[in-house]
């Protein structure tokens, strides 16, 4: 078989994020590999934010539990490419309780890479997700909006900037 794999990517996270109401509060669970904890944060802003934070597993080979924070591209102009190596694939699982049976109300997902606790060698150890509907408003990927989120995160290796 011809090897077309010219741009290698290496998965460091794969799993399913689900949310269930526990003691009246939506509580997230991550089932998979590469994540050591998951949290749900609601901020008292207008409109409110609902942010899911996945902390990468420090124990992965190649120190895969963090992402390179930035890469300086020598110009002109000199620019700082943020988290150049991160690639994330998200698929929303449909809900049987959605108005479109088996569908989802989530229309957009924002992915952000962050360093929740400064320290170490400066790598980014958290991946944040925000799901929004057509309102637009932040929503939880749970019934009737959705039935969870499949997540794969890769490290893209090598390459540089072109314009």
């Amino acid at each position: 078989m011809t090897d077309y794999a010219a741009a290698p990517i290496q998965p460091i996270v794969q799993g399913l994020l689900t949310v269930a109401v526990v003691a009246g509060t939506p509580t997230p669970t991550f089932m998979g590999k590469g994540v050591s904890s998951v949290t749900r944060t609601v901020t008292p802003t207008v409109p409110p934010d609902i942010i899911y934070t996945l902390i990468l597993d420090e124990g992965l080979p190649g120190n895969a539990g963090e992402l390179q924070p930035s890469q300086l591209i020598v110009g002109p102009p000199a620019v700082l490419i943020p988290q150049p190596d991160a690639r994330t694939l998200i698929n929303i699982r449909g809900s049987l309780l959605n108005s479109v049976i088996g569908g989802t109300s989530i229309v957009a997902t924002g992915v952000t890479y962050a360093q929740p606790t400064p320290g170490g060698d400066g790598g980014f150890t958290a991946v944040l997700f925000v799901f929004t509907d057509t309102t637009p408003a932040a929503v939880d990927p749970m019934d009737p909006v959705a039935s969870g989120v499949e997540i794969i995160i890769w490290k893209g290796l090598g390459g540089g900037a072109v314009a």
């Binding site: 741009a7 690639r87 900037a161």
Partner: peptide, 27 residues
């Protein structure tokens, strides 16, 4: 077999005109 992986960002240099930049492999 990935042939392209990268990040598209928008840069606005001193001219004020935004233009796209690709950082990664295969492009």
């Amino acid at each position: 077999e990935p042939i392209v992986q990268g990040l598209i960002t928008i840069m606005t240099p001193q001219t004020g005109l935004p233009f796209p930049s690709f950082s990664g492999c295969g492009v």
